[in-house]
Amino acid sequence: MSGSHRKTVLKVIILGDSGVGKTSLMQQFINGKFSQQYKATIGADFLPKDMIIDDRQATMQIWDTAGQERFQSLGVAFYRGSDCCVLVYDVTNTKSFENLQSWRDEFLIQANIKDPDNFPFVVIGNKIDVKENKRLISSKKAQSLCNSLGNLPYFETSAKEAVNVEQAFDVVARNALQQEESADFNDDYTDAVNIHVDGDNYNSCAC
């Protein structure tokens, strides 16, 4: 709660097509490790990362998700309450780039974002370690998409070689923190309403 001494929890969701490197990015950022082995992600789970952002203590709860829909059978209730959403594509995979917008739209709907225009997204083009001739999406093309989606911050990273991963997540953290602070306000408000609506009498019967 605002004004509390408790450290802030920032909820961050990583989305993108299967195989673009979402898990690798998270592993690189949190553990500084990269594994050549490919393991598909099933469902969604998070890893916590403690951070200090401008003297403020915060825990980033980074949710890694399955890119394949069939591995998300329970739905995406965990989108709710996110403070930032990271959209990842693979610079060697055109389809993954083309799908960015639908990931974003899907997120806005499912997470029930009240002010979609101001919700912080960060776009990441991963796998820039590949040979130049394998790259299919140019920086320019990606940048222009990000501009058209509302000037989203854009990073090109290599989870494999730890290029730009820190920088990208630093912006994620800052934007998430900003979002958290503005959302806290709203939360207080809704809580207050709830208390009036449901009252205490409901509790007594639930015990």
């Binding site: 099933i42 469902g43 789970d45 998300q72 059978s73």
Partner: peptide, 17 residues
């Protein structure tokens, strides 16, 4: 059951990690 499958599968994910 198909909705719930992911919960069972998560154990295998755990093992693979």
């Amino acid at each position: 059951r198909q909705e719930l499958q992911i919960l069972v599968g998560s154990n295998l994910v755990r093992l693979s990690q």
